[in-house]
Design a protein around this nucleic acid. Structure first.
Lengths: 150, 150
DNA sequence: ATCAAAATTGTATTTATTACAAATTTGCAA
DNA sequence: TTGCAAATTTGTAATAAATACAATTTTGAT
C-alpha cells in the first residue's frame, strides 16, 4: 500500500494537481500493478468514494497517461488498460484468460529510440500474445477432446 | 494489384478455403498495405461485391489473423487494423492524424522469442506512438498559438 | 465573502464488435 | 442429376467501451 504522500509526489512530479479522486486513482494503480481496466479501477474505488463517477475515472486515467504518470496499454482489443509501472518493460497477454503480465526486456535499441526518420516517438510498446502456462494446458486438452469427437 | 492466383495461393498456404469473399478480402489487404480497419475494407469492397456483409468482413479478417495469413494490430484504441505484411516489422501510429506506418526493425532477440517462462508466445507486436513529420509541425504551431493566447 | 477557473458528476450518445438465426452456397454421394 | 449435410454468408439485434456535454461542485485567489 502506497502512502498518500508518495502518491501525491508522483502526481506532482508529472504536473498533475492532486485532488481526492486523482490521489485515489493514482494510488489504486500503484497498488494494483495488474493492468486494470477503467471498470476495474472504478469498481475498486466506488465503495470508498461513493460519489465517484465513471467519467472521472476515464478522464483521470487519460490525464495520467498524457502526463506520463501511467502507461496506457492497447494490448487488449476490448478495453484500454493502465499501468503505473513506467519503467521499461514489455507485456504478455494470454489469448485465453485475458490476463496481462509484465515481462522484463533486455536493453534493445528498438525499445529506446526517440525518433524514426521524421517521426517523433513518444511511446514504445512491446506486446506479446499467446497462452499462459495454465491456459496452454487447457487449450491442449480441449484440442485433444475436439480431435476425439471428430 | 495481386493476381487472383497469388491471393488464392496465400489463402491455401494458411489453410483458408478460398471463397469469392475471402479472395476479395485477402486481395484487398495485399493491395492496401496501409493497415485498413474493418470499415475501410468493407467500404473498399462493397461496390464490387454489393451483397457483401460487414459481418463477413469481421469474420473473415479474424479468420485470416487466426490462421496467420494476416496480422491483427491493436495499435489503435478505437479500431482493430489488419496487415497483410506478415514479415517481421514494427508499426508507428501518429497520435494526431491516426495514420499507421510500417517501421523496419533490426534483429532483436525480444522480437523473435517463442516462449517466456511458461508462456507460449504466438505474436510479437512492437508499436511506436508519437507524431509524424506533418503533424509534429502542426502541433508545435498550435502550441505556440495557445501560449500566445494565454 | 466573492467569484472565476478547475474539477467532478451524470446522462445521453456514439460506435466498434459480437451474437445469433436465417438464407445461401458448396461439395459430395446416391 | 438430385438430394442433402456442412460450410459460408448475410442481416438484424444486442452489447459495451468510450465520448460529448451540460450541470453541479469544489478550489483558490483576491
Amino acid at each position: 500500500m502506497e502512502t498518500q504522500s508518495e502518491v501525491i509526489k508522483r502526481l506532482e512530479r508529472f504536473g498533475v494537481k492532486p485532488s481526492l479522486q486523482r490521489i485515489a486513482i493514482m494510488g489504486y494503480l500503484m497498488d494494483n500493478l495488474v493492468h486494470p481496466t477503467v471498470d476495474t479501477v472504478f469498481n475498486g474505488l466506488s465503495s470508498s468514494i461513493p460519489t465517484l463517477s465513471k467519467t472521472t475515472v476515464y478522464n483521470t486515467l487519460k490525464l495520467l497517461a498524457r502526463q506520463g504518470a501511467a502507461l496506457e496499454l492497447s494490448i487488449d482489443d476490448k478495453n484500454v488498460r493502465y499501468d503505473a509501472n513506467i519503467f521499461l518493460h514489455a507485456h504478455f497477454r494470454c489469448k485465453h484468460c485475458g490476463s496481462v503480465y509484465d515481462v522484463p526486456v533486455g536493453s534493445c535499441e528498438a525499445l529506446t529510440v526517440t525518433s524514426i526518420g521524421d517521426f517523433m516517438v513518444a511511446e514504445r510498446h512491446l506486446y506479446y500474445k499467446g497462452y499462459c502456462g495454465k491456459c496452454k494446458a487447457e487449450v491442449a486438452a480441449r484440442a485433444a477432446t475436439a480431435a476425439a469427437d471428430a
